[in-house]
Design a protein around this nucleic acid. Structure first.
Lengths: 253, 253
DNA sequence: GATCATAGTCGTCTGCCTGACGATAATCAG
DNA sequence: CTGATTATCGTCAGGCAGACGACTATGATC
């Protein structure tokens, strides 16, 4: 294990972000259009270089804020209205993943509520929310006329797929699905998050029983809302519980 | 997102290994003694630089083979007798984690059966299996006379703790516990793996019912053994199933 | 060889949780 | 007022897990 500082290969280190949200009953990811080669004009995940004196999580939080205006959640602070969950996903370092040089990318996963306003910064033509199926669909089933038909740049399709799978499995045994909801939400809204992330339909009655019967998962705020139509629904906030036991298993195929 | 190859900070990238095994009913990790500063003489996780044209997984497999003679499992090949499970764990990149320079370490988790022979290569004084509790015990409860009393070098205690937690949670919902067993093993041996990893006692009858009743988890080889004493036990191999559904939840506290 | 300790294997019972689904409640659109 | 929509409560059967009794097959000990 030689440790001569001049005797190691130099790498570039980046962070790439899988930013997920639920809009219109569909799981969407943030994509940016590349303005330079390689893959110029293609869609890619947001990301950028880690600075020389910057922690990986800090770099991911900075990129997230630059692209979306969202703040990474700090457990020691009260939750601001534009907080997103941020966690490290995995690291991708295939020597050929970037044709120009050796780049190791530490991918992060961010889960955000549906943003009412377009993102701060960046122009609307080069950054957008897109349903994950269309981003992952390499065969162009979403139509040749769509500029989303081309696969994502670099190995970003793989990174996105890994991030989606992480989100899908993690909401099974944690309360992470609330990260997709605004601060106050109804049981039905939370159920639609599960349905969008898993791509299945859930029984509203059993779901209601499960989430309201799990101690610490939801705390009622006392208010009600009819924003979904129909009978007014109770509003809840996320409770302190982070681990669901027993988990809510997604339905079999 | 500027991409000028000369305009990015240079990082060193290493892989560190959390190699776990079960010996004498106790979860143990591989530790190496550092021969040079910083942290000279302290115990650390095995690891080393990623080579200029080497994939991260390949670097981890190489280090694993160098330290233990174990081969990383390749799903496309028949399982050799000295195969170990290897997966990426997480990446650690605090700017101050190495006092000499900026080093980003991609930690990997390896699960291996108890090795009957000492490791090939390396001398016995600088590499050893140690119970994870003693490695993680920073307060020296294992005695000042033990050279294990000092905490692990760098942020390796944190990495080890993350690896142990990954292993603990992953054997809940996967068949990964078989990676700690030899190719053929009994239900009782598998149960002792769970008990060692979780640090709890499990009911032998319920455990037997669960693992033999889960399709694809275990396949009987037809043989029996009495190496544990008592009534001869059936021998099994790991089946094709990798996901346990429903999972085997570890008992509450 | 009888006895004992040890480990493995098969059953039983009870309670909890889930999936399926009926029924009722409270709103809005016509 | 009627119907559509969503929320919420209840019921029931099946599956699974925890607790634990019973029996089996070996080696060790007397």
């Amino acid at each position: 294990m030689p440790y001569d500082p001049s005797a190691f290969p130099a790498f570039a280190v980046t962070v790439d972000l899988v930013v997920l949200t639920v809009r219109r009953h569909s799981l969407c990811a943030l994509a940016v259009r590349r303005g330079e080669p390689p893959f110029k004009g293609r869609w890619a995940l947001p990301g950028g270089f880690v600075r020389a004196d910057e922690d990986l999580a800090a770099a991911a939080a900075r990129e997230l804020a630059e692209e979306t205006g969202l703040l990474a959640q700090d457990p020691t602070l009260p939750v601001p209205p534009n907080a997103a969950h941020l966690e490290q996903l995995a690291t991708y370092g295939d020597p050929k993943r970037d044709p120009r040089m050796r780049v190791v990318s530490v991918a992060h996963l961010a889960l955000a509520p549906d943003l009412p306003a377009p993102r701060a910064g960046g122009d609307a033509h080069s950054v957008r929310w897109a349903p994950v199926e269309s981003l992952l669909d390499q065969d162009g089933a979403f139509g040749r006329d769509s500029d989303l038909a081309a696969p994502l740049a670099f190995d970003h399709a793989r990174i996105l797929a890994d991030g989606v799978e992480r989100a899908r499995s993690k909401i099974e045994y944690s309360s992470l699905a609330t990260a997709f909801c605004p601060q106050e939400f109804t049981v039905g809204e939370l159920r639609r998050v599960y349905e969008a992330v898993w791509g299945v339909a859930l029984d509203p009655r059993n779901f209601h029983r499960k989430v309201t019967g799990t101690p610490g998962f939801l705390v009622p705020t006392g208010g009600t809302t009819t924003r979904q139509g129909g009978r007014p629904a109770q509003l809840f906030r996320a409770g302190g519980a982070t681990l669901l036991n027993p988990p809510m298993l997604r339905p079999e195929v």
